[in-house]
Lab assay of single mutants.
Amino acid sequence: MEVRTIKVFTTVDNINLHTQVVDMSMTYGQQFGPTYLDGADVTKIKPHNSHEGKTFYVLPNDDTLRVEAFEYYHTTDPSFLGRYMSALNHTKKWKYPQVNGLTSIKWADNNCYLATALLTLQQIELKFNPPALQDAYYRARAGEAANFCALILAYCNKTVGELGDVRETMSYLFQHANLDSCKRVLNVVCKTCGQQQTTLKGVEAVMYMGTLSYEQFKKGVQIPCTCGKQATKYLVQQESPFVMMSAPPAQYELKHGTFTCASEYTGNYQCGHYKHITSKETLYCIDGALLTKSSEYKGPITDVFYKENSYTTTIK
């Protein structure tokens, strides 16, 4: 009895394709271990004539594949690729409408935090270190965002349907971005203890939790000093293409032309909904596939993004 075979390709990165001759009487799992086709788990399936010449994702289970996976995804987590594939199996079914010149995501599976993050990423200057993220990001900007969303979920250790947080998501993504040249110098002034300067680099240099107003941050924000008295913390120097200011959701007025974009969060910790506000020729609110415009805006804002380049204080 002759062994019926077909020729397929296996890959971990969709760049390096490895030619395989597979036995049609055995499952993919018996031949390769966990195997995925377009995100779908085909591990328990036997090869079919229609699979001839198709590319299958496999887990990096030998040295060659491990090197290829690390170079593309910059992670050695053995569960990463499987999590990416199972997320992709959902995100490829989502709709990605162009809204006001940006790629958004039609609401499904509690994905409003991903839509808000995706919209924000198209408006701030950011370059990702893992080629996987950078490639998928370019495709997302062009309207094909399924891979990018699935990668975000995998890097953030999230599953489809789980509630997510924009600030946490951005923080994970910033860790995989090139923020080497970003720098922030802060000064804390206390009447009792004097003053202390701190220099922050990388992710810490672009994120701040405690106030939404970048102007206020430049002037000074009140913080408790270690001595128990009130101290003032203010920005001395900022070198970065953008800054992200966050605070627990509270009524906040966004003035046209003073910011790049913002995240609105309605609801409580267990259950809520994100919308995205962007400042173009007027203010726009993007909620999944829905767009509304207004000249002014007041609502429960939790993150505001500002364009920056270089700032030095005039406070002496």
Rank of each mutant, 00 (worst) to 15 (best):
C271G: 15
Y172G: 09
I45F: 15
G272A: 00
Y306H: 00
K201F: 12
V304W: 00
L151C: 02
E2M: 11
W107T: 02
V185W: 03
N110H: 04
Q230G: 07
V221H: 09
M244C: 04
I223M: 09
M207D: 03
I45D: 15
R141V: 11
K95Y: 07
I286N: 00
A136F: 08
Q123S: 08
S246D: 00
P130S: 06
S79I: 11
P249I: 03
T11W: 06
C271M: 14
V21N: 12
Y73T: 05
V99D: 02
V221E: 06
Y73D: 05
S246G: 01
S181Y: 12
Q175D: 06
P130D: 04
T120F: 03
T19Q: 08
Y138A: 14
V67N: 15
N14T: 09
G220C: 02
V58L: 09
L254V: 02
H18T: 08
Q30C: 15
G228E: 03
N14R: 10
Y274C: 05
D62F: 06
L151K: 04
H74Y: 05
N16F: 06
I105S: 01
F70D: 07
S310P: 07
R139N: 11
S104W: 01
L102H: 07
L291M: 11
L37G: 07
E71C: 08
Y113N: 01
R141K: 15
I223D: 07
T64S: 12
G82S: 15
L151H: 01
N309C: 11
C285A: 14
K316S: 15
Q195F: 12
A247Y: 01
D165H: 01
L88I: 06
T35Q: 05
S181T: 12
Q123A: 07
A69M: 15
L119I: 06
F32V: 11
Y208E: 08
C156R: 03
P47F: 05
A231T: 02
F32M: 10
L81T: 08
A289E: 15
S171Y: 15
Q30R: 11
E168G: 09
K298W: 12
L186M: 15
E215V: 05
D287Y: 00
G228F: 00
V3L: 13
F305K: 02
I6G: 06
Q175V: 05
V160T: 03
N61C: 15
Q98K: 11
N268R: 13
K275D: 00
L200D: 10
L17A: 09
D41A: 14
C182N: 02
F70R: 09
